[in-house]
Amino acid sequence: MEWIKSHRTKLWVAGIALLLVFYLVLTFNRAVLLLADPQPIAKAIGAAYLVLPIIGAWALVRELMFGAGLERLGRELEAEGGLPEDTLPRTAGGRIVRDAADAEFPAYQADAEATPDDWRVWYRLGLAYDASGDRKRARAAMRKAISLHR
């Protein structure tokens, strides 16, 4: 039971990924069936339908690699003692109070501007963006951290 609690997110990701793979296989199968049909319209729909599993598989692989890279960097930063301490106040529902996160954000932004070639500051900046609710910039900062780590 302890193992399940500590790996809950990974289990959810695996479940969603399996569902997506199942959907992609079904979509690919339908595309092949339509391509085999003698009607030109069916062939055209089948060809268009074939694009969906290709894009879906590409997106799935990309997201899984992104998640694995973030986990690897997070473990490395934690081993170095470089993860920021989670002292931000939370609401009754467990969400970070955005005003408090926004107040701490400039320090992380200044670190990233001062040492733009250090993946560690970009990882922490990504965490700060995430705490402030800006998921798009958080992902961009994390992508930069992964690319700098390489």
Rank of each mutant, 00 (worst) to 15 (best):
L73A: 07
R90M: 08
A140H: 01
Y108S: 07
I55N: 13
W119V: 11
L70E: 11
L19D: 09
G126Q: 01
A101F: 01
L127S: 01
A100M: 00
W12C: 14
I41T: 14
E63S: 11
A103K: 08
L148R: 03
A14I: 12
D99S: 12
F22C: 14
I54W: 05
T91V: 05
F28N: 10
A101Y: 00
A59L: 06
A110T: 10
R139L: 12
E63V: 06
T27I: 09
D37E: 14
I96N: 11
I4N: 09
D86C: 01
D99E: 14
R124Y: 02
A128N: 02
Y108C: 02
I54H: 02
E76G: 05
E2C: 12
L11P: 02
P106E: 02
R72C: 08
E85N: 10
F105S: 01
G69C: 04
A59R: 08
D117W: 13
R72V: 11
E2K: 11
L26C: 13
E104R: 10
Y23I: 06
L34V: 10
L24D: 08
V97P: 05
Y123G: 01
G15R: 02
G67S: 04
A57C: 10
A100Q: 00
D118N: 14
A44Q: 08
F105G: 00
A100D: 01
K43G: 06
